[in-house]
């Protein structure tokens, strides 16, 4: 009985962290497919979102307002980042652009050290501390918030990209750049919006996880990299597979922590990444989806 309750608990914490990875991984997929850019500052949007939100809450703003304002601010930061760092170097090699995003990540981290210091800060859970009992397992309500918000955001994104005009235009841009240009869709504008939206998604992810893991200037590094692993093992051009990859990484980590030792969880995720890169370069699920853009 205890085994099953531990099992369920681990599954839940895996799904919780997985849902965070999923939100950021989708950001990776959006940016990568629209601009070909691999943005290693993606995780730092989560950090900026979480810390900004904590500041607004501490100033006395209601949580919902603090969340909304933080997401908007980070979205704007994302847009600025695109215009100031990515756009001027848009004709550089992929490696150069990659290093530029590392530079940007440093800037974000350094600024947050100057504003918030190096000590982790806490955000109160969205709905109290009362744990929920589910089949003998104790589950934090914040986990449900995390999973719920992330699924809801993914549903909104799905609707946006498949049902709205602007979303379809973006998708068109991914499928055929030339055709998109003919239709008057500028890839440079798309790049701007893609990075901005991904930044907003990242901020949301950071805010949602902050009550569980706290928030500090360096939280973005690993979150971003794990989300990236998720996107790669899912196949960078396939959003549903990236989400599946995110939940897989989340659960894998939570089981490593539960049954082995937390010291190994990063190494295990990265080992999975290397296996996928070496042996299945199109992603873990490429056969299932059979689709490459």
């Amino acid at each position: 009985m205890e085994l099953t309750s531990q099992f369920i608990q681990l599954i839940f914490s895996g799904l919780t962290i997985g849902s965070i990875y999923a939100l950021i991984a989708i950001g990776f997929v959006i940016i990568y497919n629209i601009t070909g850019l691999l943005n290693l500052a993606q995780g730092d949007f989560a950090m900026l979102g979480a810390l900004t939100c904590i500041s607004f809450v501490n100033m006395g703003f209601p949580l919902i307002i603090a969340i909304a304002v933080s997401v908007v601010i980070v979205t704007i930061i994302g847009g600025l980042f695109e215009r100031l760092a990515i756009y001027p170097a848009r004709n550089s090699s992929t490696a150069t652009l990659l290093i530029i995003t590392i530079g940007a990540a440093f800037v974000f981290r350094g600024i947050s050290i100057l504003i918030w210091g190096t000590q982790p800060l806490a955000l109160r859970p969205f709905s109290g501390n009362q744990n929920i009992n589910f089949l003998d397992a104790t589950i934090q309500p914040q986990s449900l918030w995390a999973i719920g918000i992330s699924l809801l955001s993914l549903a909104v994104l799905y609707y946006f990209f498949n049902k709205t005009y602007l979303g379809k235009a973006v998708t068109a841009c991914v499928v055929n750049r030339f055709a998109a240009r003919l239709m008057g869709i500028s890839p440079q504008k798309m790049s701007f919006w893609a990075v901005s939206i991904s930044a907003g998604l990242g901020a949301l992810a950071g805010i949602v996880i902050a009550p569980i893991s706290g928030a500090s200037y360096d939280m973005g590094i690993m979150i971003g990299l794990k989300a990236f692993i998720a996107a790669v093992i899912g196949g960078l051009s396939n959003a549903p597979a990236a989400i599946a990859g995110a939940f897989l990484i989340g659960i894998l980590e939570s089981f490593t922590e539960g049954y082995l030792s937390s010291g190994y969880k990063d190494a295990i995720s990265f080992t999975l990444l290397l296996i996928v890169l070496f042996f299945m370069p199109n992603g873990l699920f490429s056969k299932v989806s059979g689709k490459r853009v």
């Binding site: 100031l84 760092a85 001027p88 170097a89 550089s92 150069t96 290093i99 530029i100 590392i102 530079g103 940007a104 990540a105 440093f106 800037v107 974000f108 981290r109 350094g110 600024i111 050290i113 100057l114 210091g117 190096t118 200037y217």
Partner: peptide, 20 residues
């Protein structure tokens, strides 16, 4: 009250500016 490795801001900016 600056503490920690705040200097990474400058390295970040330097890196981006040099690459561009």
């Amino acid at each position: 009250n600056a503490s920690g490795e705040f200097e990474i801001v400058f390295f970040g900016v330097l890196l981006v500016v040099i690459l561009i």
